[in-house]
Simulated scan of single mutants.
Amino acid sequence: MPLRLKTELNIWDSALKAYDKQNFSTSLELFSQIADSSKILTNMGLIYATIGKHEAAIEHFNAATNLDKFLAIAYFQCGVSNFLLGRYDAAYAKFQDAYLYLRGNRFINYEQLGLKFKLFSAEVLFNRGLSQLYLGYAKGMSDLEQARKEKEVIGHEVIDDVIRDRGGQYTVFSVPVGVLYHPSEKKLRNSKVKDYLGKAKLVIGSDLDDIYREFSGVTELKQNSDPSTSSPLESTSNADPKASLSGTPDRGATASIFRTRSIGPSPTTERSKTINGPLSTASHLSPIFPHRPRTPGSDAQPQSRQGRAARFTCLFPVPSLATMCCSIHRSSE
């Protein structure tokens, strides 16, 4: 709904509430802010007629029919104000227009448009006939007779009395006091401000761990990225290496342990030294990778192969090039 329409509906509603409290001046002031439709102008004319300002009422009824020439209710009520001012000829003309824009209907129900009022053809004919009687025209009785034929409700019984008294001191039918155009209830509800989110609430837990809640993944990420928070894997770096080697450490624990311990000759290296003579300790040390932990079983086989290679070298020495040349020279002699 456009903002301008919401604003107009809210002003319209406020003006009606002021009218119900009989704050007529406030109601007229509010209606004047949105007086750009035939309904609002008709409302203002009805309010002016209620407080007896029929000149202003006629002005607003005429403005309403200028915007909507088919608005029979505005012609009808304008004729009423003219009749109460003693302008019977002008009243007759307005009642004539109202009957014309009934377009042959016995009544028009304005309740669907927001005005709880039915305009009956019997009432329009009665007012037109009474205006002619006040002007001195006897033909006004024919309108009264036609109005009696088109009676619809109990209040129309007065038509018979007027015919019997041939006019007398009767007045015209009018829109009841307090009847005004109201906006659509559905549109009015939609114009109100709605709070879909509600109000924020601060919830404090009784325990420090209950102060706030967050996703478990976020908590784990904070623990891994915070140096002050020690995880179970990192805590093993300060543990006893021998105690860690007694079991089967995981990848993270193995990497942390072997980075902090001093590397020395393994039992297998000492054994190869004893059997095969001095060998380079560095040649028996394999690189340490976190994902491939060293175990005593994995070092034994490569070291035994190197031991056999050393024994083969000692038992079958490879002759040098000079020795081979001398042997060939002697055989040729």
Rank of each mutant, 00 (worst) to 15 (best):
M1R: 07
K6Y: 01
N10P: 03
I11Y: 05
L16V: 02
A18P: 08
A18D: 15
S27H: 01
I34Y: 03
S38H: 10
I40H: 05
L41M: 11
N43S: 15
I51G: 05
H54N: 13
E55H: 00
I58W: 01
I58L: 00
E59I: 07
F61N: 01
T65H: 12
T65C: 12
L67V: 03
L67G: 09
F70C: 08
F70Q: 14
L71H: 13
A72V: 11
A72C: 14
C78H: 04
V80R: 05
N82T: 00
L84E: 14
L85D: 13
K94A: 13
F95V: 11
Q96S: 15
R106Q: 03
F107H: 04
F117E: 10
K118W: 00
L119R: 09
A122S: 15
V124Y: 09
L125D: 08
F126L: 08
G129F: 11
G136W: 02
Y137C: 07
A147Q: 09
R148Q: 11
G155L: 01
H156L: 02
V158C: 01
I159V: 09
I159K: 02
D160G: 08
V162C: 06
V179A: 03
L180W: 14
Y181L: 05
H182C: 12
S184L: 10
K187D: 03
S191K: 05
V193D: 10
K199N: 07
K199C: 08
D207Y: 02
D209M: 00
R213M: 05
E214K: 09
S216E: 11
V218I: 13
K222P: 05
Q223C: 14
N224F: 06
S230F: 04
S231G: 15
E234R: 10
S237H: 08
S237L: 03
N238A: 05
G247A: 07
D250F: 04
A253E: 13
T254M: 02
G264W: 03
T268Y: 08
R271M: 10
T274P: 03
A282W: 04
S286M: 10
I288T: 08
T295Q: 10
S298Q: 08
Q301N: 10
P302N: 06
S304G: 11
Q306S: 08
A310W: 00
A322N: 00
T323V: 09
T323Q: 14
T323N: 11
C325K: 05
